[in-house]
Amino acid sequence: MTTWLIRRLIQALFVVLAMSVIVFIGVHVIGNPVDILISPEADQAERARIIASLGLDQPLWKQYVLFVDDALRGDLGRSFVFNEPALRLIAQRMPATLELAVTAVLMSMLFGIPLGLYAGLYPDGVVARTIMAGSILGFSLPTFWVGLMLIMVFAVQLGWLPSTGRGATAELFGIQWSFLTLDGLRHLLLPALNLSLFNISLVLRLVRAGVRETLPMDFVKFARAKGLAPARVIFVHVLKNIMIPVVTVVGLELGSTIAFAVVTESVFAWPGMGKLIIDSINVLDRPVIVAYLMMIVLLFVTINLVVDLLYTLLDPRVRLEAKG
């Protein structure tokens, strides 16, 4: 288990390194680093000073070493717009995004599993067919479009739910959270639903396919032959088998959910890092862009690692192999 973990950590490190090279090349080679890293308002003397201090007169490989060195010390530059360290800006916005993404992922299981279970148990019914048709829409409709429709129906026409912002927040572990207040929850509902629609479709299809595949298995019949109640057969014997792929997929999707939060945050004016990055791109606040990209890569790698770990914990066969 330990060697396995170390190996995975080294792999993860390589991916982060590779991505840092790509981001570095993107910013320093394709774009003009002077334009990117120095505020357009700086005068000539200021420019020269910064070019020297950033080491832009050094050879490329040295610049990269410098970039990594700074990054390791948590210095990814200062935002031109906010005049704050880019990393701190992102860290401030991160809880809102994580809150949104995690809620969306939880919602995807909350809706996806029962719907998929139903569609798998009664595959020929009208309801199941409707669910499956709906899931095709969930896959193919652009998130922002669905978000607009949600706002149009629930905020504008019906006036049930607010359409912008986080609402009231409360503090927990020194961070502000929306889900702790009723108003915050009301604000969270539409964006989270919007963000989860794709994942709901994904989960429900996975669960349905899993149910269809597991139900005819001998061990399900044997469980019934033991005289177990149908609920126990379905929720323990069938569902536990399906949960392994579902949890893996949902966990892996957390990364792309955070990425796609960019869209939902823009539609619902949710003050997370997604909205920050879009605003930053629009005003060319490039230190923030670089910091965001590096943070996202790190986040991705971490999530992949955690999912792998979780997966080994869930599936006894993998767990034992990993032990060696």
Partner: peptide, 19 residues
């Protein structure tokens, strides 16, 4: 594999942020 492990929106965002 590397390309597919990153969501499409993020890759597009990166490219357009630079270009």
């Amino acid at each position: 594999d590397l390309q597919l492990s990153f969501p499409s929106i993020l890759v597009a965002l990166m490219i357009l942020a630079v270009l």
